[in-house]
Amino acid sequence: MKVIFLKDVKGKGKKGEIKNVADGYANNFLFKQGLAIEATPANLKALE
Rank of each mutant, 00 (worst) to 15 (best):
M1R: 09
M1T: 13
M1W: 05
M1E: 02
M1Q: 04
M1Y: 09
K2T: 13
K2V: 13
K2E: 08
K2Q: 11
K2R: 14
K2L: 15
K2A: 11
K2F: 14
K2Y: 14
K2N: 10
K2W: 15
K2G: 05
K2C: 14
V3K: 03
V3S: 01
V3Y: 01
V3I: 08
V3W: 01
V3A: 02
V3M: 02
I4P: 00
I4R: 03
I4A: 02
I4T: 01
I4L: 10
I4S: 00
F5S: 00
F5N: 01
F5H: 01
F5G: 00
F5E: 01
F5L: 07
F5C: 02
F5V: 00
L6D: 00
L6Q: 02
K7M: 12
K7N: 07
K7S: 10
K7V: 14
K7A: 13
D8R: 07
D8I: 03
D8E: 08
D8T: 12
D8F: 08
V9K: 00
V9L: 06
V9H: 03
V9W: 03
V9C: 06
V9P: 01
V9G: 00
K10L: 13
K10F: 14
K10N: 11
K10S: 08
K10G: 08
K10Q: 12
K10I: 13
K10P: 15
K10Y: 14
K10H: 12
G11N: 09
G11C: 09
G11D: 09
G11Q: 04
G11S: 06
G11Y: 08
G11K: 06
K12H: 15
K12I: 15
K12P: 01
K12Q: 15
K12A: 14
K12F: 15
G13R: 00
G13L: 02
G13C: 06
G13A: 10
G13F: 14
G13D: 02
K14Q: 09
K14W: 09
K14Y: 12
K14T: 09
K14F: 13
K14S: 09
K14N: 10
K14M: 12
K15G: 03
K15M: 10
K15I: 09
K15N: 04
K15H: 05
K15E: 07
K15T: 08
G16R: 03
G16I: 01
G16V: 01
G16F: 10
G16A: 03
E17M: 07
E17H: 04
E17I: 03
E17S: 06
E17W: 05
I18K: 03
I18A: 03
I18R: 01
I18P: 01
I18N: 01
I18M: 07
K19L: 11
K19D: 03
K19I: 11
N20I: 15
N20W: 15
N20Q: 13
N20P: 08
N20M: 15
N20C: 15
N20Y: 15
N20A: 13
N20G: 07
N20T: 14
N20S: 13
V21Q: 01
V21F: 08
V21K: 00
V21P: 00
V21I: 09
A22C: 12
A22Q: 12
A22E: 14
A22T: 13
A22F: 09
A22N: 14
A22I: 09
A22D: 14
A22V: 08
A22L: 10
D23G: 13
D23H: 15
D23F: 15
D23P: 15
D23N: 14
D23L: 15
D23Y: 15
D23R: 15
D23C: 14
G24C: 13
G24S: 14
G24D: 15
G24R: 13
Y25T: 05
Y25S: 05
Y25H: 03
Y25G: 04
Y25L: 08
Y25N: 04
A26E: 06
A26V: 05
A26I: 05
A26Q: 05
A26D: 06
A26N: 05
A26W: 07
N27W: 15
N27K: 15
N27H: 14
N27E: 13
N28K: 11
N28S: 12
N28A: 12
F29T: 08
F29Q: 06
F29V: 13
F29M: 06
F29I: 13
F29W: 11
L30Q: 00
L30I: 02
L30G: 01
L30H: 01
L30R: 01
L30P: 01
F31Y: 06
F31H: 01
F31K: 05
F31P: 01
F31G: 02
F31S: 00
F31N: 02
F31M: 06
F31E: 02
K32V: 13
K32W: 08
K32A: 12
K32T: 12
K32L: 11
K32Y: 07
K32Q: 09
K32M: 11
Q33P: 00
Q33C: 15
Q33N: 14
Q33K: 14
Q33M: 15
Q33L: 15
Q33E: 11
Q33H: 15
Q33F: 15
G34E: 07
G34L: 07
G34S: 06
G34K: 10
G34P: 00
L35S: 03
L35E: 02
L35A: 05
L35C: 04
L35H: 05
L35N: 03
A36Y: 01
A36W: 03
A36C: 04
A36P: 00
I37H: 04
I37F: 04
I37A: 07
I37P: 00
I37L: 09
E38P: 14
E38D: 04
E38R: 11
E38K: 11
E38N: 05
E38W: 06
E38G: 04
A39M: 06
A39Q: 00
A39L: 06
A39F: 11
A39E: 02
A39K: 00
A39P: 02
A39I: 04
A39Y: 12
T40W: 02
T40A: 03
T40Y: 03
P41W: 11
P41T: 10
P41R: 09
P41A: 12
P41E: 13
P41M: 10
P41S: 10
P41C: 11
P41D: 13
A42Q: 12
A42D: 12
A42S: 11
A42P: 06
N43C: 08
N43Q: 07
N43A: 12
N43S: 08
L44K: 06
L44M: 11
L44W: 04
L44H: 04
L44D: 02
L44G: 04
K45F: 10
K45Y: 11
K45I: 11
K45C: 09
A46P: 05
A46F: 12
A46Y: 12
A46Q: 11
A46D: 09
A46R: 13
A46M: 14
L47Q: 09
L47H: 10
L47P: 04
E48D: 11
E48H: 13
E48P: 09
E48L: 14
E48Q: 14
E48K: 12
E48S: 13
